[in-house]
């Protein structure tokens, strides 16, 4: 292996470790929020909570993880068209997820307002998560801006890899948030 290639790989492992450490730190944020949920409300859950909607938006987010994965795999093999299409799908699904959360919020305001026991927990958890989704969407957007055409190659697509990893992490967080909010009893 040439020295230049070694340097590129070293740089890549450095960036990866940094991102994973960031994710580790962020997962403690979500852990703290989950603890707050159980500490304040135990396993209580109001009957008005829209479980089917929660299930649907969970599915949407999982699906967006698949499209993000497909996008990353595509660029790893140099298939730019497939990459762009999948990242755009991911963006769309992410927006759809946020719309779902918005509907939930509108219902929540009627049945369990933010300043009440469960409402506090619900709005905080979904709010923090939605904020992460939003930042993820902004990051994904930078990958498919018109000016980025032809930028990522199988040799160098760290930006894609990093942002997609972050997106998966947002999904993992939801994997834990969904049952804690919607399903425990």
């Amino acid at each position: 292996m040439s020295r230049a290639t070694t340097l590129v790989i070293n740089r890549l492992t450095i960036k990866r470790l940094g991102l994973w450490l960031f994710i580790l730190s962020e997962s403690f944020l979500f852990l703290a929020l989950l603890v707050v949920r159980f500490y304040l409300q135990g396993v209580q859950r109001p009957t008005e909570l829209n479980q089917p909607l929660g299930f649907v938006i969970s599915g949407i987010l999982l699906l967006s993880s698949l499209t993000a994965y497909r996008g990353e795999s595509a660029i790893a093999y140099g298939d730019e068209k497939l990459f762009r299409r999948n990242i755009l799908f991911t963006l769309g699904l992410g927006i759809l997820f946020l719309v779902g959360v918005g509907i939930e919020w509108a219902e929540g305001f009627r049945f369990f307002p933010p300043a009440s026991g469960f409402g506090t927990v619900f709005f905080t958890l979904t709010g923090f998560h939605a904020f992460h989704v939003l930042t993820g969407l902004l990051a994904l957007l930078t990958l498919v801006l018109p000016g980025q055409k032809g930028r990522f190659t199988p040799e160098n697509y760290w930006a894609v890899e990093g942002i997609v990893k972050y997106w998966h992490f947002v999904d993992v967080a939801w994997v834990f948030i969904f049952p804690t909010l919607y399903l425990v009893s």
């Binding site: 707050v36 300043a115 026991g117 409402g119 506090t120």
Partner: peptide, 8 residues
């Protein structure tokens, strides 16, 4: 809690 009245 100070700003929006959430009840933690």
């Amino acid at each position: 809690e100070r700003l929006t009245g959430l009840g933690f």
